[in-house]
Each structure stands twice: as C-alpha cells, then as structure tokens.
Design a protein around this nucleic acid. Sequence first.
DNA 1: GCTATTTGACCGCC
DNA 2: GGCGGTCAAATAGC
Length: 172
Amino acid sequence: MFPAPQIGNTEMPPEDGFTWRKYGQKEILGRKYPRSYYRCTHQKLYLCPAKKQVQRLDNNPNIVEVTYRGEHICHKSLTAPLSYPPPQNLLVNINTTSTQATIPPEAWPPAVNLGLGGGNGNGGPSTSRFGIDYPVADMADAMFNSGSSSGNSMESLFHPSEDKWEPDEKIN
DNA sequence: GCTATTTGACCGCC
DNA sequence: GGCGGTCAAATAGC
C-alpha cells in the first residue's frame, strides 16, 4: 500500500519505475472507491503483459492498494529500456498489500527481482526476500503518521533523487 | 497529429 | 444474473 499523492484534483498512482497507461476503472462491490486498471505503456512495443490495479482503501483514501499482475518483459527486450530505479516501491507494495494473498509467491513477477541481484525469490513475503532489507515498517509508519496530512513524507518514501526512469526507447 | 485518459459497453467466470 | 476485467470510442492535453 502507498500513500496516494494528490496533485490538485487529480490523483497519482505511486511511481514505481515503470510507466503505466490507464485502461479502465470500475466500481467494486463493497468498496467505496473505484478500482483503476493500468497496463504497461510498452505493452504494444514489447508485448509487455504487466498490469496493475490501484484500489483506494475504504477507511483511508490516502492509502492505495496496488496489485501487480503479470511481469514486465519490456525491460528484458534487447530494444527495451534496460535501466530503471530499483523497484523499492514495488517491493514495499508486495510486502504490504493484502492482495498479495491472491498471488502465489512463485507466480510473483520476476520483474521485482531485477536489479537487486536477488534470485532468491522463492521465499515467502519478507522484507529480505530480495536479499535487501528495507525498513518497510518504518515506511509504513511514516505513511500512516503523516500520509494524510503532509505530502513531505512522500519525499522520504519516494526519494526525489530517484530519478524518474526515462524510457530509452530510441536506442539505435 | 499523437498519445493518454475517461467511460460506457462488452465478455468470461462463478 | 452479478461481478470483475478489458475493450474501444470519444475526448482532452501536449
């Protein structure tokens, strides 16, 4: 789960190093807020099947629940962008979202392992399943403590220095 | 003009 | 038949 940054009247799904294109939104039974559906922007270029669903929590609209489906193959393609920030955000999501139960660990997208030299992705959900320990609890704590009142926490969670990945699609 | 977003309609599964 | 997920036309922004 992530704090849901808001800019003006619009909302932004958490940046996770990939570029997503929204393709649908649905009211979900029992949920106060609609679920948004995103797919990888490079789906057409690289037939990347990666998708994600963004669902706001009923009791805390400032927190979004992000579910990843499929894996990114766009960065595996020879012609695809090869560099992007470490999926720290993705990692946190996987370890915290309640929807992880719907995704068997062995089916988790290998994409989350990339760049981290993990390879030990067979363990259960843990903060170190990629070989790197992240202060998930601290981040979550920061989220819940300040997520609803301050946008500054976002900078501590999603470092500005984490340069936005620029798709280098025009490599030739 | 191209690309992304919105949104109603459609489809498959339970 | 209801629900979740996806499609595709219309629209907006750059």
